Simulated assay, not measured.
Amino acid sequence: MTTPPVSRRDRKKAVTRQAIADAALRLFLAHGYDDVGIRDIADAADVSTATVFKHFSGKEALVFDQDQDREAELIAAVRQRTAGQSVVDALRQHFLDLRSSVEEHPQATEFTHLVESTPALREYAERMWTRHAAGLGAAIADEFGVDHDDLACAALARFVLDIPALARGRQDRGGVIEGVFDILDRGWRPPAGRPAR
């Protein structure tokens, strides 16, 4: 099946959207998130404020400009996994690959600091991930031929989508991803240490 060609209008919209996101990130990294306004971003991208809002729902969305692709990528990780690969392993690989691509970005350190030092961005990031729970849960349910509100599928989706929040601020983010997926795959075990009371 061939993919329909992207129209010139859609290409132009994508270029404008990326220019706005790039300008916003440059300004946020240089001046701090709270000291940059939408007008500043519009001026830097050479567009109107109305154009900024046509492409982004608000200031936080400018930082996470690739969010619209996240749900599609999560669902594809489930539906397009290799033969014999479990849903949990497919999602584990997706999160590890995503972490690698983020960490390899030249502005990864500055971006991470921006998000972790700005309460509004931390909260937005958590909401951003968890709002994909219904779509991911439905995709998982489809793989097993059960209703979209199946508790096990919904719970797996929700736990998986909390991984970025659990990894935030920790040195070994890859270890966090592996650790959470080990729990999801094998079940929870008490941590080593003194016995629970």
Rank of each mutant, 00 (worst) to 15 (best):
W129L: 00
D43N: 14
F144A: 11
G174A: 12
A24I: 02
A165C: 01
I75E: 00
D43R: 14
G193Q: 05
D46N: 08
L114V: 03
R17F: 04
Y33K: 02
S117C: 12
V102N: 11
G174Y: 09
W188P: 07
R173T: 07
R92Y: 06
D142V: 12
I163K: 05
V36N: 05
D34T: 14
Q171A: 14
V115Q: 01
M128V: 05
A139K: 03
G169V: 04
D150F: 06
R131F: 09
L27K: 06
L121R: 03
E103V: 13
V52C: 05
Q171P: 10
G84C: 07
P5S: 07
G58H: 09
V63N: 04
F95Y: 12
I20R: 03
D182K: 13
D89S: 12
G58D: 15
G175Q: 05
A196S: 13
I177S: 11
L161H: 04
D185H: 15
F159E: 15
R79N: 09
I20G: 02
F181N: 02
Q80K: 13
R122T: 11
V102I: 15
R122N: 09
L74K: 00
D147H: 13
V176W: 04
R158P: 00
M1C: 04
S117Q: 15
D65P: 05
F159S: 14
F95N: 07
I41R: 04
L96K: 05
G175H: 03
E60A: 10
K12Y: 12
I75H: 03
R158F: 10
G137K: 03
I75T: 10
P164D: 08
D89P: 05
I163R: 07
E104F: 06
V52T: 09
H113R: 15
A30T: 08
I20T: 08
